Simulated assay, not measured.
Amino acid sequence: MILVAGSANLDFITRVPHLPRPGETVLGPAFTTAPGGKGANQAVACARSGHPTRFFGALGDDPYAAPLRESLRASGVQDTSLTLDAPTGAAFITVADSGENVIAVASGANALLTPQRGPDFTDVTHLILQLELPLGTVQAYARSARERGVTVVVNAAPAPHEPLPAALLADVNVLVVNEGELTGLVGPGDLSQQLRAAQVLGPGTVIVTLGGAGSVAVSGDQRIKVAAHPVTVRDTTGAGDTFVGVLTGGLGAGLDLAQALRAASVAASLACTRDGAQPSMPTRHELDRALAQAGRVD
């Protein structure tokens, strides 16, 4: 069982010709809503790719919670999230015609998920965490998981405004970052040197996603590079979360790191071809079909 502990937000999405600059207003034709939040996204991606998945988060007692719970249920996720006296989280996403996006998040109930309100680790082999929950909560969940022999996967996103605690990094087995998050963690430098420097902080495996250039991982002395699956990009929202969910599901199913990375890379690319976060995430059938067409691992 893969456990995802993290945020759940209702996304409000607007498409525009280009991302607005500070002080600029850019007109779009309409807006849509879709279930999102990094935690819920990663749970949906994991479950849709065929892996038993449980989600633990916090939602409000309001109408915005219903589509989030329904998306989890429809994707096959076991939803164990709490209902708290606070607004359900919301994200306001602007997507340019190029596929790039900017996102502002109102945390709502997510911010009230405290260390004392912890998940059930029964039958859990892997725990996925992100940084849309309070950092102290993330740290407490990681510690609880490691004490139970659970493999801890942390997606250090969104990029933190403060250094990640050494105690948290010491409890992480697999760290997933993008290029900016990696530089924020260890400073600028050669990519291979950055990855090794991140390993020194505690995680035995460090993975950096590189957008259209694929991903690179170091695990022990091993270095793996995986190319991105070629697609026509429409919307990158949720692609990183798709990568993390499918990667962890693959590892939980017994794939080696190279195989899990390949599946994650292909799934993330497929998610870029459709609008939204959870609505864009591929099913197991779609993923298997694309994997059969994907290039080899270098």
Rank of each mutant, 00 (worst) to 15 (best):
S215V: 13
E70K: 14
P134L: 10
A263V: 07
T209R: 01
Q222P: 00
S75I: 15
L191F: 01
Q116M: 11
N178G: 11
V226Y: 07
V297P: 02
L131W: 00
M281L: 12
P115G: 07
A268T: 08
T80H: 14
T80L: 15
Q278H: 03
S71I: 13
D288L: 15
V95R: 01
N155F: 06
R15F: 13
G149A: 12
S215L: 10
T242G: 09
Q293M: 13
A30N: 06
P160Q: 01
E162W: 00
A65V: 02
T209E: 08
D61W: 05
P203A: 07
V102G: 02
V26P: 13
P119I: 12
E162K: 01
A91V: 06
P160A: 03
G184Y: 04
V105P: 02
T237F: 00
A111I: 09
D241S: 09
G249F: 00
V154S: 07
D256M: 08
D288K: 06
L129R: 07
K225L: 10
V216I: 14
E162Y: 04
G118N: 03
V226G: 10
P119S: 06
S144D: 15
S265K: 03
T94I: 02
R284D: 05
E132I: 09
T83Q: 08
A213M: 08
D97V: 03
L185M: 13
L131K: 01
A197T: 14
I103M: 07
G276W: 09
V153F: 03
D190Y: 04
I224S: 09
L129H: 00
A30G: 04
Q116Y: 05
A96K: 10
L251R: 07
E147A: 15
D120F: 01
A258C: 09
L257C: 09
R143C: 03
S81F: 10
F243Y: 15
G39K: 03
T273Q: 10
N110V: 11
A40K: 02
T151N: 13
R223N: 02
N178A: 06
A198M: 13
A45H: 08
A228H: 04
L3H: 02
R296I: 12
S71Q: 14
V208E: 06
N9V: 06
A45V: 14
G28D: 12
L195W: 00
A111D: 14
R234L: 15
R15S: 13
N178Y: 05
G245R: 12
L133K: 04
V105R: 01
A86K: 00
G76N: 12
G76S: 12
P279V: 10
V246Q: 09
G50C: 14
T283E: 11
L257Q: 07
V16N: 12
L270F: 01
V186H: 02
V174G: 00
R143D: 08
Q259R: 10
N173K: 03
G89Q: 11
L135A: 06
G37F: 05
N173G: 09
V4C: 11
P203R: 08
T205L: 03
T151K: 12
I13T: 11
N101F: 01
V266P: 09
G89N: 11
I207P: 00
T33F: 06
R54Q: 13
L195T: 03
G220L: 15
A109I: 04
A58E: 15
H126P: 10
L201C: 10
L131C: 11
S144C: 09
N155E: 10
P158S: 10
A166Y: 04
G57W: 06
G249M: 07
S107A: 12
T242H: 05
Y64N: 13
G276D: 12
Q42K: 08
D275Y: 00
